[in-house]
């Protein structure tokens, strides 16, 4: 109720005629909202439901919408069959290592970009935008050849290298934004009180930067965890496959019977992303809109 009052002030004062049109538009708005909720949410719901159905239910000509005997069999079967544990281990290894390297490298660089404002800043932004335009096919072929020469094809470290390089520009960009958000006066005050340069960075800048650092590293983690194309080209050995690769291969062999396992495996593979997303959801939206809510 209070919300309603607060936001009525945001838009416009309602004249009587506006109230009348509102009585017509409100229901339409709710219908539209419902349509969006169904379009966006139903596929997710259906994936969830499918994961709990038995093969018999999946094969039946008139499948019931809800699972009749919900159980976790699909999850166990998927884990066994699709080699999910190993793939998850590979994904985890690659994503964690990438995140650590990217964070360690980009932190000083982001500081430099934010505080020194050299031409590097423009170059970094330019590269971020430019690298979006080029199709990956142009990069992957030479990269494939180079990595082959140094023996990093079919090697998780090769994948880490590629992911590091491709996450860096974004991580840098994000982080330098957070660095800019730390008032430089604090640093000045610190050094005026006689703290050394390192001390200023460690005891003043770093603690203030912590939330931004977390968000950036989570972003890096998730983009490595989800990546498919580079992994498809660079990893051939089944025992080195990452989760998206394993799942994509699982698709090819799907019969009606396996749909449940496929859904279960997909759900399991999405969990880390969803957890991450739940963690930073507020930051994500508020960060994007923070400039907006001035008054």
């Amino acid at each position: 109720m209070t919300q309603a009052i607060a936001s009525a002030g945001r838009g416009t004062r309602l004249t009587p005629s506006a109230k009348r049109t509102r009585r017509i538009t409100r229901p339409l708005q709710y219908i539209a909202l419902a349509a969006y909720v169904v379009f966006l949410g139903f596929p997710l719901l259906f994936l969830l439901i499918t994961a709990f159905k038995t093969p018999q239910e999946l094969q039946s000509p008139n499948p019931a919408f809800l699972p009749q005997q919900p159980n976790l069999d699909n999850f166990f079967a998927a884990i066994e069959k699709a080699n999910l544990i190993q793939a998850a281990g590979n994904s985890l290894f690659v994503a964690v290592l990438t995140t650590v390297i990217v964070t360690v490298i980009s932190l000083p660089a982001a500081y430099a970009l934010a505080r020194f404002r050299t031409m590097l800043r423009g170059i970094a932004t330019g590269w971020i935008l430019l690298s979006q335009v080029f199709p990956f096919i142009l990069i992957i072929i030479p990269l494939f050849l180079v990595l082959k020469q140094i023996g990093l094809i079919n090697n998780l470290f090769g994948l880490v290298l590629v992911y590091t390089v491709w996450s860096l520009p974004f991580a840098l960009w994000m982080l330098q934004g957070y660095v800019s958000g730390v008032p430089i006066e604090l640093e000045e005050a610190g050094s005026m009180d006689g703290a050394s340069r390192i001390r200023v960075l460690r005891s003043i800048v770093l603690p203030l930067l912590a939330p931004g650092l977390v968000a950036t590293s989570l972003f890096t983690f998730i983009s490595s965890w989800n990546e498919f194309f580079f992994a498809l080209v660079l990893i051939q050995d089944p025992s080195l496959q990452t989760l998206p690769l394993t799942l994509a291969r699982f698709v090819g062999a799907e019969g009606q019977v396996q749909l449940g396992q496929l859904a279960a495996a997909s759900l399991l593979a999405t969990i880390p992303s969803l957890v991450f997303f739940a963690l930073i959801q507020r930051r994500l939206t508020s960060g994007l809109t923070s400039g907006a809510v001035k008054g």
Binding site: F42, L44, T50, V251, L262, T270, L274, F276, Q281
Partner: peptide, 18 residues
């Protein structure tokens, strides 16, 4: 916001079910 958190491979699998 949810599609953002999902790997494209899994979005594709989900819609294959749909």
């Amino acid at each position: 916001l949810v599609p953002w958190a999902m790997p494209p491979v899994i979005i594709a699998i989900m819609w294959r079910l749909m």
